[in-house]
Write a protein that binds this DNA or RNA. Sequence first.
DNA 1: CTGGATGCAAAATATTTGCAGGGGC
DNA 2: GCCCCTGCAAATATTTTGCATCCAG
Lengths: 133, 133
Amino acid sequence: MFNSSILLKEYNLKVTPQRVAIVDELYKNGHMNIDELYQNLLKKFPSISLATIYKNVNAMVEKIFLNEVKIPESKSVYELVKEEHSHLVCKSCGKIEDINIDTSILNSSILSISNFKVEDTKVVFSGVCSNCQ
Amino acid sequence: MFNSSILLKEYNLKVTPQRVAIVDELYKNGHMNIDELYQNLLKKFPSISLATIYKNVNAMVEKIFLNEVKIPESKSVYELVKEEHSHLVCKSCGKIEDINIDTSILNSSILSISNFKVEDTKVVFSGVCSNCQ
DNA sequence: CTGGATGCAAAATATTTGCAGGGGC
DNA sequence: GCCCCTGCAAATATTTTGCATCCAG
């Protein structure tokens, strides 16, 4: 079972209702941008401030507990950190899906060209999802 | 030989000294963010406006003649459009390099999982460049 | 000559910060 | 009770827009 309070504690963040709601929203929706988070939290906390969203999201990103995903031609979205994975972005409906593929096969191609030491690999595929086809 | 005026004409953009300079800077430096472009152009055009940079970069991106590259934990950079390629970002010195690797080998992995139709693939590797190692 | 480009200023957006009060632990 | 968190307001940063003038074609 997913428990956002425990998660927050593990990362040394005080458990507040606003933080729990942020984590729960992200758990439920997978990926959200700042404004989607704000709009959704407004329903539960009519007086929540955008500054609170920013402060918390930034704090969680710093604790490496949220991950920012930069989307081509669109706003960044945030997700809970899980195993490394890639993203599929549908150009038609905008939906973002996670996909687990092995990107390390690319590393050998890099080594054959450059002496660069790869630490992280971010892959975003844009195209058309099955629903929209 | 590289000729920025011809390039601009091909994309139906009037050839102005500011535009030529933007294209020349990007050709020379490979990747630049908005502020680097502005600072460099100020040397040639002390009264150039940031608005001019934005208007032109946006126009060139729309004509698909510049490409915006979103860099993890950093600002977007722009580059002249060339064959599809990936990017290496050095976490130490910040340098960004192009690298030509075949990313289509990933597509078969996607097909085996999802029915998503891939149209574009953006890959950014972060790590340590050979100089910084 | 004409329409689009430039530079400036202002507006619109996006993000961060300071601070007083409130609440988690 | 202490200190961090919240919400508000203000400050900053980023990007866009309107407009008068200028210049490429």
